[in-house]
Design a protein around this nucleic acid. Sequence first.
DNA 1: GGAATTGTTTACGACTTTTTTACACGGAAG
DNA 2: CTTCCGTGTAAAAAAGTCGTAAACAATTCC
Lengths: 232, 232
Amino acid sequence: MSETRSQVLIVEDEAQIRHFVRLALEADGCVVQEAGRLADGLLIAGAGAIDLVVLDLGLPDGDGIDFIRAYRGWSDGPVLILSARTEERHKIDALDAGADDYLTKPFGVGELRARVRALMRRRQRAGGEVSPLLEFGDIVVDLAKRQVWRKGEAVHLTPIEYRLLAMMVSHPGQVLTQRRLLAEIWGASYIESSHYLRVYVGHLRQKLEDDPAQPRHFLTETGVGYRFQTGT
Amino acid sequence: MSETRSQVLIVEDEAQIRHFVRLALEADGCVVQEAGRLADGLLIAGAGAIDLVVLDLGLPDGDGIDFIRAYRGWSDGPVLILSARTEERHKIDALDAGADDYLTKPFGVGELRARVRALMRRRQRAGGEVSPLLEFGDIVVDLAKRQVWRKGEAVHLTPIEYRLLAMMVSHPGQVLTQRRLLAEIWGASYIESSHYLRVYVGHLRQKLEDDPAQPRHFLTETGVGYRFQTGT
DNA sequence: GGAATTGTTTACGACTTTTTTACACGGAAG
DNA sequence: CTTCCGTGTAAAAAAGTCGTAAACAATTCC
């Protein structure tokens, strides 16, 4: 936490706990954003440069496990679970879905802060080792900074465009089915709205392909989904 | 844990718990080394090749915190604390000294394994995942990416063509009856429409065989079905 | 409050895939 | 030799999918 302060997102329905966590983390110099529902949380996480997510599993508008899976679709950032569920089964499921730590309520504020510090420390160390720049022909993507360049020029992407791109570059060469893309970007209730994908893949091709009509990276697999091709 | 198995070091004075942890982690494919004292633990860890340390804080020959500090002097590898001490102060101190996770005794074996998997996952994420390739002469199939190559060149297949190919390469050398292929690809009500198969096997031969008229992989078993021959 | 940006929805032509139709080939049985 | 059956190609028609532009609604930003 030397120059840029860490951005933390809290996804939690109880305003009281949100506030409690916010105070705890701000004491360590974090910048905190709050979301009361999973859908809002995904929106914020997709829109901004979030360094760490603190997630309550028991939210009213959906299962927190689904949030982890969706988030993991485009981000490797640490996720700490807060939950009232103490059963081992829940912990295992959350950790295996991609969470990094699991803290059961009630928890001590000091322990929460220490665990957040541990995750942040590990994150910064990992960032130093590996270059976060992904390069594909003319396209360069920095997933950590949420920035995209084409032929050296910065490209502006909207939140949805960015999440779609991040999902695709995170699975190079692989076909991502329409159902999966829709479920992880718009939510499980949108798996039939495939026209959204046509519109937004179109946007990405417009902004990132040399010839949008003859895409070389964002390939269509008719009837199945889309494939991000890394090669030239 | 793709090729090289993870090396785990357990530093713990009670032989019973050591054995318990060893069994738990070996079940996940880890290679486990044990140390009963901090000094022995440092010696083993110092020899290198350790991917993760499971450390009991309450050892007779010294403070576990000192172990963490010493270990952090040369390694960034993950450290998971096991401890009978439940007080928050101890957790905070251990985490701030460089530990990555803190589990209080008694703990569930499932949770321990899940937390170890979470730490390992984060460690290995930098390395790209490799999906298994099926190779048959000139033909290479990547079922995970849904991609097919012939003599190094990508081959485009329609959904039905791909499902037919996937079925055949999944049962190499085996005769698949027309009824079975039709039922699995088109549905149970199509088991008499054997003529679809002629069309689509024809497509596959056209796209993947050297001489479609003299197929070497997609063989006809007249009156029965088709066989996928793996050999050259 | 107004302007700019972003997300959603609609419409339609172009394109891909599937289904259907037609016909030629070749071996086995009569 | 002819007939029949299962088979292999080709190409049509039909069905389904995709890409784009543009209008509208919601949201954000000044």
